[in-house]
Nucleic acid binder design. Sequence first.
DNA 1: CTAATGTTGTTGCCTGGGCAAGCAAATAGC
DNA 2: GCTATTTGCTTGCCCAGGCAACAACATTAG
Lengths: 169, 169
Amino acid sequence: MVGMRQVVPRMDQVQAGAWMALMTTAQLLPAALDEQLTADAALINFEYGILAALNVAPDQTMRMGELAAAAHSPAPRLSKAVNRLEARGLVERVACAGDGRAINVHLTREGRRTWLQATPPHIEFARDTILGSLTPDQLTALTELLQPIISRLDPDACPSDHPPEQAGR
Amino acid sequence: MVGMRQVVPRMDQVQAGAWMALMTTAQLLPAALDEQLTADAALINFEYGILAALNVAPDQTMRMGELAAAAHSPAPRLSKAVNRLEARGLVERVACAGDGRAINVHLTREGRRTWLQATPPHIEFARDTILGSLTPDQLTALTELLQPIISRLDPDACPSDHPPEQAGR
DNA sequence: CTAATGTTGTTGCCTGGGCAAGCAAATAGC
DNA sequence: GCTATTTGCTTGCCCAGGCAACAACATTAG
């Protein structure tokens, strides 16, 4: 019994370090993003992602289902976010011609204006505050290291998608 | 005016890729953690962290302030989490002898039992599902790449686990 | 045509978290 | 000693998100 000090499995030093770094990042990053966006545009990151997705969609319009998929969001969460955006006039719901139960979400002129205003500080924050400390080679390395983790967390996550995708396609 | 297509700043391909990987990780990781812990021990990650911190503390006891610092949590969040844990008998509040306004949080026997039971699946999940796809060298690289990002997000985040703020400096 | 099933969104209820206000003990100023 | 400030923690109020129940329309089977 003397050798049996720990009942629980242990991580070695390297694993523990990576684990802590991942956890800390996952904790701080969303908070920092929401803080920046809320201060600069009264938007949370999730809402910004909706505007961004609509902005690059044909006719600035998407179906709820598409939007939910693009934002990796369950339907209720998206529905409520669209409620909020619609109440502010940034977005409008339009009945879908072909299908009576589908809803088209359309980015209003005001919504696009808000997105245009919100984006520069957001991109700046991402580049300067977050990515700015790494060289391009390091960024590439980071991306490749995170990719397998993402794949294991969500097998459906594909490399190219998501909110802050660049504006001009 | 023809050349002026975009008013908003852009990220290059490398930056955008890293950005997306970071965002996706930050989105998926906490959800996966809470899911695993909730299923296996009816704890969310934050609560698990509290038990874990108490478990390694001298006398299985910490002051609220210490705990909040250890969990990188604002005071109200910790207070409410301790409320929940105390209601389940996993933790108890004890008045602090020397200071009438301070509260010592103590891990009960039942709390330690819960932590012991919750930990193996948690560690397994972390090692196998999340870190398992990377070699030790890659884990080291990942840690070093995330470190500067963490530092920029929170200047107070200390790289090493416990630089124990010993009283006598 | 009608009934059963499937699809698409929305609403309600509950929980966790942020922030500001509050309370109580300790400390500093007078 | 007595007020004023500071420290340590808690509570209340509000918002965002998860899940299940629901409503509305579409589709398929009989």
